[in-house]
Design a protein around this nucleic acid. Structure first.
Length: 649
DNA sequence: CTAGGGTTAG
């Protein structure tokens, strides 16, 4: 023992090492193994990123098995995510791979849960979560985000609440920003705005995503005031947040606010993309102001998301131009588009339809079929509306018959509405009534409303009463129906029935909607007129101008149509009421304030009455102006004394 | 990983 220790101590260390034979494989310290593994890992991940098919992923997995890496959670997590992205059903191959891993880590579990959330069955996400907890594995933040997403997509708020409770129970997650955001999203999707708001208020840390989620929820619930308040408080407003506001205003029929908001956004130096543009374009479409239309097209073109390259923006612009009354511009946009889809075609077809160009609409429909684009339900609304607005009954019937047979579009109540409208407008009221009575699906208010409208055109109080009875049941609070019926009785001189309907309205506590017209002024502004209103700043001038206009029109054969007045009053009073209609005031104002030769565009919130229609016809002749009136049904182009609707509306 | 989106009817 002594010897041995002496011998060992005398042996010089360098000699010792030199005397040893070099191992054939270099000794690799553990840190280097880690390093190598890391490199391999990166390599595998890069390869997985490039995989575009299940077979390729299978090859990678075979390779992992060969390298002893098939137990490596990190790499398998990536593999599962790749399979999720490739939409391989989770219950098949991915689950197989997962089950081969003896000790999956929490990220791998999360990847499985997320996979099931995205591809379904969503119930499996929850099963996996329970299983994971039983195995004693903890969650990570995206475990919860996946679960909340699952609850949101099946609108299961009870499950969402349970998972919410889990985040509280486990601790650390309820304060996680990302978990919080997905939780808010879950509550909002399920329609629990208050719960979402509560989570938001209690979050220790919030980002622009949290704010935007709530802003959108308020906007969707119609509460733009709350949305705006939140938005003003938002410290860092990014493009998405601004866009949410612009779109929110547009979706809540507040186009002016949407435009203001957009201008503020521009002023703040925030960029825009196609989503912003779509909101903006939709706002302008509602406004129907042609001055904005060209401005918006310019912006789109400069933004890099112009109608030529972006099919979304292009389709929205078609709709906008057509609603602004510029059918030509709409068609120009349509022709300039590199790509067209069913939205582009449908918007254009509807454009033709509401402008009374039925043949163009049907031709475009044929062109669409030739271009191999499948029509959808909206496309058929468009072609049927086209037929209806020009009285092409046979053509419309034919299209209706083929829609299910050849294009696999099952007629909905909306399509039946078009058909009832088609028959009704053409004067075939009995046929229309029979269709409404016998249609295979339940008729909604639209169907009976179309019939009621047809009864107004063709003065049929009896069928009108039948339609109205259905409507009063389906839409007891829709004032328009009572007004329509009352007007039909009025124009038939049945004043007893008129007062009966009016009494019904009073009992229901319903008040008449004010009728408005908007007209574009010379400098591109918009002036609003309300029927019977006398507080316009230029009221006296307008009154004088409309009286003069009336005289001039009467010289050219115009006679007031007293049947258009729904009140049982003296003829003098009827004449006064007729002249107070908002579109006549708007016209008088426009003639007074715009350049001769320019087109006059008027927008109404209700249907134009017969008297105003005749008035506009003669006015277009006398003034030599092109007058476009958009009512809530369609566009009327008055030129040289006639309207392109051929008095058929 | 989480937030914003287009056509429809009486």
């Amino acid at each position: 023992m002594q010897n041995l220790s002496r011998k060992f101590s005398t042996l010089p260390i360098h000699k010792l090492s030199r005397s040893q034979p070099q191992p054939t494989k270099a000794f690799v310290p553990f840190s280097e193994i880690q390093q190598q593994r890391k490199l391999l890992k990166h390599k595998i991940i890069t390869v997985l990123d490039g995989c575009t098919s299940l077979d390729q992923v299978k090859q990678v997995h075979a390779h992992l098995l060969g390298n002893g890496l098939s137990q490596y959670s990190y790499v398998i997590t990536k593999l599962i995510r790749t399979l999720t992205k490739l939409q391989v059903p989770m219950g098949t191959y991915p689950e197989l791979v997962f089950k081969q891993v003896r000790y999956p880590n929490r990220f791998l579990w999360a990847a499985m849960i997320r996979g099931f959330t995205i591809q379904g069955p969503i119930s499996e996400s929850v099963i996996y979560y329970t299983w994971m907890r039983r195995e004693g594995t903890g969650p990570v933040s995206f475990t919860f985000s996946a679960l909340f997403k699952a609850c949101g997509s099946v609108l299961d708020v009870n499950l969402g609440r349970q998972i919410h409770a889990q985040t509280v129970l486990i601790g650390g997650f309820v304060t996680d920003l990302y978990v919080g955001n997905t939780m808010i999203d879950m509550y909002l999707k399920c329609g629990f705005l208050d719960c979402g708001r509560k989570v938001f208020d209690e979050m220790p840390e919030r980002d622009v995503v949290s704010w935007t989620e709530l802003i959108v929820a308020y906007a969707k619930s119609g509460d733009m005031e709350s949305a705006r308040e939140l938005f003003e408080d938002l410290p860092v407003k990014d493009m998405v947040a601004w866009t949410a506001m612009v779109t929110g205003y547009a979706q809540n029929a507040l186009p002016n606010e949407a435009l203001d908001c957009f201008e503020r956004m521009q002023g703040a130096g925030v960029g825009i993309d196609e989503v912003t543009l779509i909101g903006l374009i939709s706002a302008c479409a509602q406004l129907g102001a042609s001055k904005y239309a060209n401005w918006i097209r310019d912006i789109s073109e400069k933004s890099g998301f112009g109608p030529t390259e972006n099919v979304f923006v292009g389709s929205a612009l078609i709709d906008m131009y057509s609603k602004c009354g510029s059918l030509d511009d709409a068609y120009k946009v349509f022709q300039g588009m590199k790509q067209r889809n069913v939205f582009s075609y449908s918007s254009m077809i509807l454009g033709f339809a509401v402008h009374g160009c039925a043949n163009a609409a049907i031709e475009l429909f044929q062109e669409m079929l030739t271009a191999d684009i499948r029509p959808n339900r909206v496309t058929f609304i468009g072609v049927l509306t086209a037929c209806s607005h020009v009285g092409m009954v046979d053509q419309g019937r034919q299209l209706f018959a083929t829609m299910e047979k050849y294009y696999n579009v099952t007629p909905s109540a909306d399509h039946y509405t078009c058909m009832v409208d088609l028959l009704g407008r053409a004067g075939r009221l009995e046929e229309a009534l029979e269709l409404a009575d016998t249609m295979p699906i339940v008729a909604h208010g639209g169907v009976w409303g179309a019939l009621l409208g047809a009864c107004r055109i063709h003065r049929n109080p009896d069928i009108a009463q039948i339609a109205a009875n259905h409507l009063f049941e389906l839409e007891p609070n829709n004032i328009g129906n009572y007004m329509m019926l009352s007007n039909i009785y009025a124009s038939a001189g049945k004043w007893g029935d008129v007062s009966r309907v009016r009494k019904l309205m009073r009992e229901k506590g319903l008040k008449k909607n004010p009728a408005y017209s908007w007209v574009e002024t010379k400098n591109g502004g918009v002036q609003k007129f309300c029927a019977g209103e006398t507080n316009h700043p230029e009221y006296n001038e307008i009154k004088k101008a409309s009286e003069d206009l009336l005289k001039r029109l009467q010289d050219h054969g115009y006679r007031q149509n007293l049947n258009s007045v729904g009140y049982d009053v003296g003829d003098e009073e009827k004449m006064r009421i007729l002249m107070a209609h908002s579109e006549k005031q708007a016209l008088a104002y426009a003639l007074l304030s715009t350049d001769s030769g320019s087109t006059i565009r008027i927008i109404k919130n209700i249907r134009i009455c017969e008297d105003c229609h005749a008035f506009m016809c003669v006015a277009s002749q006398v003034s030599g102006r092109h007058i476009i009136v958009r009512d809530n049904m369609r566009f009327h182009h008055f030129k040289n004394g006639t309207c392109n609707c051929s008095n058929f509306w």
